[in-house]
Design a binder for these strands. Structure first.
Length: 272
DNA sequence: GACGCGTGGAC
DNA sequence: TGTCCAAGCGT
């Protein structure tokens, strides 16, 4: 849930989630569509399919217990290098090189003197993080949490609170006079994109109690708007379903390909 | 290595 | 208001 999603938005969903499915086996016993519904508007819904698949794999291959080693965790769906390291370190107390976006930014500034880390994680960054990780196991766990928290709370992407920073005297970026980023991060477009349409379609499918006929998306945007009222589905996107049929086709095909939707005789629905 | 993938709070 | 960006991953 925390992959690319702020903690404050995850917390309420996470609480309800663990109340409903306390163990991997509980989640694995549910249809994937139920997990997609419970995911709500956290975003990146492919993550929830992978989480569901990971629960199944944990039951099938690990006796229902979340594995406690990096390579085993890495083998689970949706678990990459960051998540495997984070779970091994923070859940099981192991010494792992944890590198998330916060830690990358702290390292870029404090050690490399750059305003922002490279667009993508590099091997050099991983080497550097591994080199400076404390050798003591317990200390390494606290180190990872501390650097991550420093990045999240003080050494933020925009308007870092350098006046509050406990290590500002040893910051290479401050010493260099706060040079600007060497590149301009390009934000993700949203309005009018396939992605927006895809999100709107899935929002409708989450709401729907019965399969949604394909024509319903094209011919009844007002009905979709009515159905979507009060749950934050952007009506502009729903209208766009009617005006950009090729976008709708791509969104539906993509959702089917990803396993986020199924097409039955009666229409589209979340996976059973 | 580049790309596609959601959503909403902050400024 | 529009832009930025958040505990990444898989292809």
């Amino acid at each position: 849930m925390l992959q690319q999603t702020p903690v404050v938005r995850v917390l309420p969903v996470w609480n309800e989630w663990l109340k409903r499915w306390p163990t991997p086996a509980d989640l694995a016993a549910e249809p994937a569509g139920e997990a997609v519904r419970a995911w709500g508007r956290l975003g990146y819904p492919r993550r929830v399919l992978r989480l569901h698949a990971a629960a199944a794999a944990i039951v099938a291959d690990h006796g229902g217990k979340v594995p406690d080693t990096y390579p085993e965790l890495l083998g689970l769906p949706g678990v990459g290098s960051y998540t495997a390291a984070a779970v091994a370190a923070f859940a099981y107390g192991r010494r792992e090189t944890v590198v998330d976006t916060n830690i990358r930014r702290v390292h870029a500034r404090l050690l490399s003197g750059q305003a922002l880390p490279a667009p993508a994680l590099t091997a050099a960054e991983m080497r550097l993080a591994a080199e400076i990780l404390p050798s003591d196991q317990a200390e390494s766990v606290r180190w990872n949490a501390a650097v991550m928290e420093l990045g999240a709370m003080v050494c933020t992407a925009r308007a870092p609170k350098c006046g509050l920073c406990p290590v500002r005297d040893s910051c290479a970026w401050l010493a260099a006079g706060e040079p600007p980023p060497s590149y301009v991060p390009k934000g993700q477009a949203w309005h009018g994109t396939d992605r927006q349409v895809r999100g709107a379609v899935l929002a409708v499918l989450r709401l729907a109690e019965i399969p949604v006929p394909p024509d319903h998306f094209r011919t009844a945007p007002a009905d979709l708007g009515f159905a979507a009222e009060g749950v934050g589905v952007p009506l502009t996107a729903l209208h766009r379903l009617n005006s950009a049929p090729e976008q709708l086709d791509r969104a539906l095909a993509g959702l089917l390909a990803d396993g986020l939707a199924e097409l039955t005789d009666n229409g589209y629905r979340l996976p059973a």
